[in-house]
Amino acid sequence: MSGATRKGVVLHLGVVALLAGLQFVLPAYHHGNLARVMVLASFALGYNVMFGYTGLLSLGHAMFFAAGLYGMGLAMRHLGLPALPALALGVLCGAALAALVGLLALRTAGVAFMIVTLMFAQTGYLTILYFGAFTRGDEGFVIPRAARRIGALDLSEPTTRYFAALLLLGLCLFATLALVRSSTGRVLIAIRENEDRARMLGYDVFRYKLLAMVISGAMAGAAGAAYGLLFGYVGATFASVQYSIFPLLWVLLGGAGTVLGPLVGTLFMFYLIDLSSGFTSAYMLIAGVALVLLTLFAPRGLMGLVRARLVPWLP
């Protein structure tokens, strides 16, 4: 293990330990918020694998989140599957959809890739509405509290929910860390930096991109399935364009291509809206201004700023 790698592992262990410690001191409201943010940050971490490290800008990531959400939710609602297998199924749905979409969409690049993913996501959203008899369309449905259990663990109980969210986040965090430190990860970054050169060096670029997409889809699917299980609701809003824009925003704000960036970006955006809505109804105006200012003064995102100014070895 090189020095930088060891420092990276220690840093992320520290972050996870800090989050675990916070559980005991946070007031109830922020405790609940942080659980939610950790699930959404896992979604953003998935996005970061594709966008931050491989350079694939997708505008359709909501479909993978929704695949996990609905894969889990529909299996529980219609097949009576228990929570744990349903969760696994959700992850699988996210990964499988990413593989399918990847096989087609990766034939394109750049803006065409953005649009193709956007359109596939739109298809997914409309499909959920079209099969309203099973999905209850835009209204969505509730996962009954009694079913939201894994063994003796009641996922609707605040502490359990918090640690479940932390577990998910920790898994995604260390998976990302392991990936970017591996030879595969270095190829992905090489593709981001210069795809033609990577190809000339003999790498099968398509396969590496597809792999990144499947990992990303699995993380998004896991986040979606976990979100439904922990908060008890499955709905089509989560498949809409808005939820494809969010992870992009979170990642860019936090710092694309940094492991901690997605968490920081998600947390920042959540509290930006939550706090500003406390004193004005025009809180989206404040969010908009903050976004513009951030792009002007922190061009590589918050963690990018930290990496440039303070911690050059930040993974």
Partner: peptide
């Protein structure tokens, strides 16, 4: 990339 975030900000504004 930065113009995407900035124009999302403009959209909100």
């Amino acid at each position: 990339e930065r113009t995407i975030v900035a124009t999302i900000g403009l959209l909100y504004i």
